[in-house]
Amino acid sequence: MTEHVVPVRVYVTIFGVLMALTAVTVMVAFVDLGPLNSVMALTIAVLKATLVVLFFMHAKYSPRLTQLVIAGGLLWLVILLSLTFSDYLTRHLLTYG
């Protein structure tokens, strides 16, 4: 077959990074950073998800068409989230009477 066979070393390295990031996100949660706690937790989650998609799910080695579908899916997710929050996060800016 022609699909890319990813070396075991890559999988094990990514696994190590994912475990380390899990430890970091748990430790950071016990430190009071104010609003930055949520930012940190979500940034680490996005980083972990990106590693899983790129290496465990082979997106890095996939044909351009597959990569385009993944990017298209993320674009729709961004539309979903940004339109939702453009409403809910801005309601307090409006005062009626």
Binding site: V52, F56, M57
Partner: peptide, 24 residues
């Protein structure tokens, strides 16, 4: 299987980690 892992990667901090300290 990896996708289901990714869902948990987001659920874990959102559900378990947001209330760990008084400032949350």
């Amino acid at each position: 299987w990896h996708f289901v892992d990714i869902v948990w990667i987001f659920l874990f901090p959102l559900l378990y980690l947001i209330g760990r300290h008084p400032g949350a």
